[in-house]
Design a binder for these strands. Structure first.
Length: 274
DNA sequence: ATCTATGCCTGGTGGC
DNA sequence: TGCCACCAGGCATAGA
């Protein structure tokens, strides 16, 4: 599912295709994707000109002259950039026609994704964005931020890393990879982590995310018609989805457990509770 | 404060 | 071309 690296790859891929394009028509085939009144939303989208695309955490931010479209892909959201004559897949729920005649089509099998149009001035007051935490990359300049957050709670460290009000961008897959790399047990209470351990976690998060972004970038050539979310990082996974396989570091069999209701993969030898 | 349950959805899977 | 129950999961929301 799209986490920070996949969303960043989508952003990088879409931006050059969309900048300066004007939306000439919009179709909504599944209104629940749209936050608020979708009829009003459609009217508001017409004539918008793309200025740039930003990203914060897992949110894509399509920036127009005065407004911003906040888009979350959730589990399976994808964008297609296609001609009007191409067949419309049954999982396409929103279609933007552009001034160059191409269409940007939003595809989402599970229909969990969302789109919300807001004014630039209210962007960071919007409910979905208002309480978000920091990008992991920001923490290079704030080395104690995660340690301080962890000191404040007895929650399991995996739940803390998934909490978007603390850090943005990590989802279930990357959290497992980050904890494995940092050699920390996902169920360890956050307030028992040392300052050094939180520093190692930050370093691991940045390294994993950067590597994944780099690998997402390598698959640009496959985005000629389908955009986003099929990078090559799945080939780099060390523990996630590896139940029953050997740990790459020590050979111990990888386990799958439930942590906070989420499927969680770990090496029980490398990742020990304190 | 923090956890759990529910809803939003569909495709894949395992059991029969 | 079998059918069905169940699971996966990000986030909002409600209730414990």
């Amino acid at each position: 599912m799209p986490e920070l690296p996949e969303v960043e790859t989508v952003r990088q891929t879409l931006q050059p295709l969309l900048v300066d394009q004007i939306i000439t028509d919009v179709q909504v085939r599944w209104p629940n994707i749209i936050v608020g009144d979708y009829v009003a939303w459609m009217k508001s989208m017409i004539e918008q000109r793309f200025v740039r695309i930003d990203r914060f955490g897992k949110y894509l931010l399509f920036v127009f002259e005065n407004d911003v479209l906040i888009c979350h892909l959730r589990m399976e959201g994808k964008f297609y950039y296609q001609t009007q004559s191409e067949e419309i897949n049954k999982h396409v729920h929103v279609i933007f026609t552009l001034s160059n005649g191409m269409q940007l089509r939003y595809h989402d099998v599970r229909k969990f994704g969302t789109m919300e149009l807001v004014s630039k001035s209210s962007l960071w007051k919007t409910k979905s964005l208002a309480k978000l935490g920091k990008e992991p990359f920001e923490l290079e300049q704030k080395p104690d931020y995660l340690f301080q957050k962890c000191q404040q709670t007895k929650r399991m460290i995996k739940s803390v890393l998934l909490d978007q009000t603390i850090l943005v961008g990590l989802g279930n897959i990357y959290v497992d990879e980050v904890l494995y790399r940092a050699k920390i047990h996902p169920e360890q209470a956050a307030n028992t982590l040392s300052k050094n351990q939180t520093a190692v976690l930050v370093e691991a998060a940045i390294a994993v995310l950067n590597k994944a972004i780099a690998l997402g970038g390598t698959t640009i050539r496959t985005y000629q018609s389908t955009l986003g979310v099929d990078g090559k990082f799945q080939n780099e996974l060390q523990v996630h989805t590896k139940k029953g396989e050997s740990c790459p570091r020590c050979g111990t069999i990888i386990e799958k457990i439930k942590v906070g209701g989420r499927g969680t993969y770990l090496c029980p030898n490398c990742q020990r509770m304190e």
